[in-house]
Design a binder for these strands. Structure first.
Length: 230
DNA sequence: CCGAAGATTGCCT
DNA sequence: GGCAATCTTCGGG
């Protein structure tokens, strides 16, 4: 059963832990892939310095400012996609980043997509089951999610991307949910809005924000006034 | 117009 | 554990 839109009409920090155990399913001509969500992160709007919506609406994040229950997909690091689920009424711009899941259907298709997306396709074995959707960009690869799905309504049963309530037998209790700082964010690094199923092996590793290596091209720059000619 | 950073991943030392 | 890959987006000049 797909989740009701009302489920997403709440603050992201409230929606996030409730998404754990729910199922994200993608549908395409290639087939279907489904995962049980095991790790998510909440991002608020204007009040959250780590949120893409912090500095206001842009062409890229416009979906975040729209109605709840839609997917916000963005491209980053020149090669990866990440998917969020928009929360709260239009204008609030909060969302939940889907960071990791356990593949429960379409594992073969997921593995094929993961290999195809790999820069250097491993000559040896395929992708380990554990790594099919462990990490936000890997999860998108496994489900075939890219910018073409930006804005997709996930509350519709036959949607190319839908979110369903926890299947019986896989649901876990709230007491098994852990919380901690969000991965890779440099702003509001102390806010503990990352939620995961305690001890679950499909949860990604924690990594603090990377300090970008300052440019090293000190020498070798052209002669002074480079753009001048003669 | 240009520089810099980015809600990451995977390979290399 | 460190760092390259790769390019879009955003903010400042």
């Amino acid at each position: 059963m797909v989740l009701d839109r009302g489920f997403f009409s709440r603050p992201a920090v409230a929606v996030a832990p409730d998404l754990l155990g729910c199922v994200l399913r993608s549908h395409s001509a290639d087939g279907d892939v489904a995962v049980v969500l095991v790790e998510v992160e909440a991002y608020a709007g204007l009040a959250d310095a780590a949120s893409h919506a912090f500095r206001g609406q842009t062409a890229r994040n416009s979906v975040m400012f729209g109605p709840p229950g839609h997917a916000y997909v963005y491209f980053t690091y020149g090669m990866h996609f990440c998917v969020n689920l928009v929360c709260q009424p239009a204008g609030e711009a909060s969302a939940v980043l889907l960071r990791a899941g356990q593949v429960i259907a379409g594992a073969e298709l997921a593995a094929t997509r993961r290999l195809a997306a790999t820069r250097r396709p491993a000559a040896r074995a395929g992708v380990a089951e554990r790594d099919l959707a462990r990490g936000p960009a890997r999860l998108c690869q496994a489900l075939g999610i890219d910018r073409s799905l930006d804005g997709t309504d996930v509350c519709v049963d036959d949607s190319p991307l839908a979110v369903c309530s926890p299947p019986a037998g896989i649901q876990r209790g709230r007491e098994q949910i852990s919380a901690g700082p969000r991965v890779g964010v440099s702003q509001a690094a102390d806010v503990e809005w990352r939620f995961w199923l305690s001890g679950d092996r499909f949860v990604s590793d924690y990594r603090p924000a990377q300090r970008r290596t300052r440019g090293q091209p000190v020498s070798g720059r052209g002669p002074a006034g480079g753009t001048m000619h003669r």
